[in-house]
Structures are given as C-alpha cells and as structure tokens.
C-alpha cells in the first residue's frame, strides 16, 4: 500500500468539469446547426467546419508556441467559438475570411488575455465584429434560405429582414408599407428567411437554450432579462408610433437576437457572476440593442451591445453582491 494522502476537506468532487460544460454548449447548438444545414445546404457545413477547424488549430498553435502551456483544445471552448463564429456569418462567406475571423477571435479575443477564463470579451463576437468592419460587403450579402429538399439551386442573396426594415425606414417608408417585403412571424420562427446561419431558426435556438438550462449550464436571468427588455422597450416605441417603429415580436425574432441572448451573452467567462449583476447586464444588452437598431448605423446591434456590456462586467461583479445569509428577519 502506498502512503496515505493528506489533503484538506472536501475529499470528494462533484461531476462538474469545464469539459462537460463546454461540450454541453456544443450539444445545445446542434439543433440550430441542423436547421441551418437544412436551409443553406452544405455551404453551412462548410462554414462551420472551416471555422471550428481554424479555431481549434489557432488555439493549439498559440497554446503550444506562445503560451507554452498544457494542451487545452479538448476542453471544447475553441469548438464553441468556432461554431458561434460560423453561426454569425453568411453561409457563402469566402473561406479565407472565416479563417481570418477565427484567428482574430481566438488570438485576439481569447489567447492574448491568457486563454480560457481570462478573456473579458466573448471571442466569437470579437471575431464577428472584426469581420463585419473589415469585410462589410461579404458579411452582409446574405443568402436566401432554400430548404435543401427543394433541390440545390444557385444561391440568391439579399438583405436580412432587419436590413430591409432598416433601409426602408431610413428611406422614409412606413412599417405597413414594408410589411409585405419581410417574412411573416411564423416564417421567422421556423427560420425560413435570409440571414446568418445561426440566427435563422428561433425554435432551434430556444430548444438549445432549454437544454442548457436543464443541464444547469446557463441560468434564466440573462436571456430572459435581455428578451424582456427588448420586448418592453420596443413595445413603447411601437405604441407611440407604429408606422415608424416595428413591432416587438419582429425585434425578438430577427437578427440573431435569440442567438445572442441565449448563446453569446450567457458565455460564463464574460458575463457577471451574481443574479442581480446578470439582470442588469441583460437589461443593458437589451436597451443597447434596440438603441443601435433604431438609431444606429447598423441594422443589427446585438454583437455591439454584448461587447459593450462585456466591458462592464468587472464593475457589475463589484457592485452587485449575492444575497448574503444572515439578514435580520423579524420573528415573534
């Protein structure tokens, strides 16, 4: 028998592990992935494959030759970044832009801070914003959704529903004039619209979110507070002037709102720790998103809103403490 081990309590460990959490997120993204393959065909798979492979490769490369640490690619976080990155781009994006985006996401967004757990911003969003600013044309020519069962035809590109709305309103048209041009709410829900791969099907993403809640990977606070804020805030606008401000349902179902609220804002590394902090963070994202969508230059504000709120996380962690045990309770 070897020597007895002495260590401080506790002597058992739960079955939680970083790997398990990260792979849980990967599983949660599968429904959305399947839907995007259904609508965009094999192009979707191509983009996901390139993004994941590039992300994992860059993480391995940087970890091995720059950080000189243990191999971390198997913890799955690079895979998540890759998939999220792919979900945020049009499925017809040239491969070299994807690789460049993955390099920025992993290299600048994550590894430059010291790797998993130390990045203040969501790496996938850093990559996405980089691509959006550097390659605006390629990043905004969205292929129309064509169910794979209809047979493979030449891809038709066009703006997203949000884009149509934004341009139309900017050009002085009213909501009711634009309504026929955009897909119906039902179509938005199942994902039959043009857009980036991950944002197309609301149902698939909600399914993934429920899975993560069930597995206790995420808590309800962040997604619910974002969606609720967006709903309330845009409802106010819509109530004041329904001809110039579009309905809240439209805001919720388009432009990666759900993808952002469920998969990107909830990224544990770059979101606050305490419940109240998370609620404030979610409300902040919701407000900023609508502000950018309504008054900003871009039709879509989710990524910028999340990145801006990411930067406030240390402050939120400091300001909002958990409910401490031991408050005075009156008793008789």
């Amino acid at each position: 028998m070897s020597l007895l081990t002495i260590s401080a309590s506790p002597h058992v460990h739960g079955d939680n592990s970083t790997k398990k959490i990260m792979w849980g997120v990967v599983y949660a993204m599968i429904p959305a992935l399947l839907v995007s393959v259904y609508y965009f065909g094999l192009d979707a798979l191509r983009v996901v494959f390139i993004a994941v492979a590039a992300s994992v490769f860059f993480e391995w490369l940087i970890q091995k030759y720059l950080i000189k640490g243990a191999n971390t690619i198997m913890d799955g976080s690079a895979i998540i970044t890759g998939i999220l990155l792919a979900f945020n781009v049009p499925s017809n994006l040239p491969w070299w832009i994807i690789i460049l985006g993955a390099l920025v996401a992993i290299g600048m967004g994550k590894m430059s801070y010291g790797g998993l757990g130390k990045n203040p911003f969501n790496p996938a969003l850093v990559g996405r914003v980089f691509m959006l600013i550097s390659f605006p044309v390629q990043m905004t020519s969205w292929p129309k959704a064509q169910p794979i069962i209809d047979g493979i035809t030449d891809a038709v590109t066009g703006p997203t529903a949000l884009g149509i709305m934004k341009e139309g309103l900017d050009a002085g048209k009213t909501v009711s004039e634009l309504m026929p041009e955009i897909p119906s709410n039902m179509q938005l829900l199942i994902g039959n619209m043009g857009g980036s791969m991950g944002e197309v099907s609301a149902i698939a993403i909600i399914l993934g979110g429920l899975y993560m809640c069930w597995k206790k990977i995420i808590t309800w606070e962040i997604p619910i507070s974002i969606l609720l804020t967006v709903f309330v805030f845009s409802k106010i606008f819509c109530f004041i002037d329904p001809e110039h401000y579009v309905s809240p349902i439209f805001h919720l179902l388009t432009g990666g709102m759900l993808l952002g609220a469920i998969f990107m804002a909830t990224d544990m590394v770059s979101s606050p720790m305490t419940r109240y902090g998370q609620l404030v963070y979610g409300v902040g994202i919701g407000l900023l998103t609508i502000i950018i969508r309504v008054w900003g230059a871009y039709p879509e504000g989710m990524s910028f809103a999340i990145l801006i709120m990411n930067s406030t996380v240390p402050l939120l962690n400091n300001s909002f403490k958990p409910t401490r045990f031991g408050k005075e309770v009156k008793h008789g």
Partner: peptide, 17 residues
Amino acid sequence: SNCIRCAKCVQVCPMGL
C-alpha cells in the same frame, strides 16, 4: 484548470458569499 467564471461556486454557497 483556469477559472471560467461560471459562478457555480457563488450559486452553491450556502452563506451567500
């Protein structure tokens, strides 16, 4: 491994620390 700031410890702390 690195802390991933998942806040699981904050959630399970019975004293709210």
